[in-house]
Design a protein around this nucleic acid. Structure first.
Length: 255
DNA sequence: GCGACAG
DNA sequence: ATCTTGTCGC
């Protein structure tokens, strides 16, 4: 499995090769109902010329839920903030959870779910790491390479690598690079992702931990964090991920 | 041997 | 990930 991950990492592209301009991504649905006034703005100057494409990109959120030894993979596809398709698949789990080998446990269900998806996402958001992985082949990278679509990983905790600064109690919108340490299969110091404070309480003794985002495939670390910031939604997790998360729970409940 | 460790 | 009520704070 580890060797396969090295091969996948070799095929992965950690530079932008998207079918759309990341700078045009915004959370249009939220802008009408959101109560906060902070809106993330992307500077188009730092983004490379996008491949020709007039339509708004289709962004898919992917997340799994579990019941005993079965996995439910749910996909919610959005365009301009509107849900255009939802689908899911249920498979039997054969691999236990082992840090570093998550894609082998959840990958099968995800592949099945994608097989039933009619639209073709311009970007897929996975729950877990991408390049922030010992062999630079986390779930988002593995799936991104398998489908050859731009993919990003969004994790709630850090698998490996080291933040440039302390992530303690940071303000909303804050970000800091995650660099590779000796445990990662790439030159030490390589920026493999970012810690991103997607949400934070304005004051008080309670705080929210940041998200750890990383490139999966065909996206750079910088664009990955810019995209997560743009996908917003007003909650800790970006909207596509939240919708996929609740849809997976919904499917789970209906059984 | 000991510690670290996505979901 | 999952098992789950109340509870603290905005």
């Amino acid at each position: 499995m580890e060797e396969l991950q090295r091969e996948i990492a070799a095929e992965a592209e950690f530079t932008d090769r998207l079918s759309f301009d990341p700078a045009t991504v915004t959370q249009s649905t939220e802008s009408l109902t959101s109560t906060d006034s902070t809106q993330s703005t992307l500077t188009s100057a730092e983004n490379p010329a996008p491949t020709a494409n007039q339509e708004s990109p289709i962004i898919a959120g992917v997340d799994q839920a579990f019941v005993d030894d079965t996995a439910i993979s749910a996909i919610v596809a959005l365009r301009d903030g509107d849900i255009i398709e939802r689908t899911h698949a249920v498979t039997e789990l054969s691999v236990p959870y082992i840090p570093g080998l998550l894609s082998f446990r959840e990958g099968e269900a995800i592949v099945e779910a994608f097989a039933t998806l009619d639209c073709e996402p311009d970007l897929a958001c996975f729950d877990g790491s991408g390049r922030i992985h010992y062999r630079q082949a986390g779930l988002a990278t593995h799936m991104g390479v398998v489908f050859d679509i731009p993919a990003i990983g969004i994790a709630k905790s850090l698998l490996c690598g080291e933040p440039w600064e302390s992530v303690e109690n940071r303000p909303e919108g804050w970000r800091t690079p995650i660099e590779a340490t000796g445990r990662v299969d790439c030159p030490a110091g390589t920026i493999i992702g970012y810690a991103y404070q997607s949400r934070q309480y304005e004051s008080g003794s309670r705080h929210i931990n940041p998200l750890y985002v990383s490139p999966g495939h065909r996206v750079s670390a910088e664009t990955t964090v810019d995209l997560v910031a743009a996908l917003g939604g007003g909650y800790k997790l970006p909207e596509p991920t939240r919708l996929a998360d609740s849809y997976a729970d919904e499917v789970k409940s209906d059984r």
